[in-house]
Simulated scan of single mutants.
Amino acid sequence: MKTSVRLIVATTLITLLSGCAVDGMNKTATYGGIGVLAGAATGALVGKHNRGKGALIGAALGGMAGAGYGYYADKQEAELRHQLEGSGVGVQRQGDAIKLIMPGNITFKTSSSDVSSNFYNPLNQVAASLKRYDQSAITVVGHTDNVGSRQRNMDLSQLRAQSVANYLISQGVAGTRISTVGAGPDQPIAGNGTEAERQENRRVEINLQPMNQG
Rank of each mutant, 00 (worst) to 15 (best):
Q135D: 13
K53Q: 12
A38N: 10
L130A: 06
G95H: 04
I8D: 00
L130C: 08
S112K: 04
N118I: 12
G70E: 03
F108C: 05
V115L: 14
R132A: 14
S112H: 06
A161T: 07
A137Y: 03
V22E: 13
D74P: 02
L7W: 09
E205I: 00
Q135L: 11
V204K: 01
L45M: 11
H82W: 06
M64T: 12
R203P: 02
T3V: 13
Y69C: 06
D155R: 10
S4G: 07
A78P: 01
R177I: 06
Q199D: 14
S163C: 11
A29Y: 00
V204W: 03
G47H: 05
A137Q: 03
G191M: 09
L17W: 12
G88V: 06
G104L: 01
A55Y: 05
N207A: 10
Y69M: 11
V9M: 06
A165H: 00
V164W: 01
S157L: 05
M25Y: 14
R202T: 09
G33I: 04
I57C: 07
L168V: 03
S87G: 07
L16S: 04
Q83N: 12
A73Y: 01
N153S: 10
S112L: 06
Y167G: 02
G175W: 09
L61R: 03
G32H: 02
G70S: 09
T3S: 14
K53S: 09
L156H: 01
Q171E: 10
S117M: 14
M64P: 03
G88N: 07
Y120S: 13
I101N: 03
A174M: 09
G54C: 06
R177N: 08
V5C: 09
L17N: 11
E79T: 09
R152E: 15
N192S: 14
G95K: 01
T12L: 05
R51N: 06
K99R: 14
R51M: 08
S149I: 11
L7E: 09
V147A: 11
G193P: 00
N26W: 05
G148V: 08
G58S: 03
D114R: 14
L208K: 02
L16G: 00
L123W: 02
D96C: 06
K99P: 01
D186F: 11
D74C: 07
L13S: 12
T110Y: 12
R51D: 05
V115A: 06
I206G: 00
Q83M: 11
S4T: 13
R152H: 15
S4V: 13
Q135S: 13
L159K: 15
D23C: 10
D74Q: 13
Q135N: 14
V164G: 01
N105W: 09
A137V: 00
V89W: 02
Q135G: 11
M1Q: 10
Q125V: 08
N121S: 13
G175F: 11
Y71M: 15
K131D: 10
R160N: 06
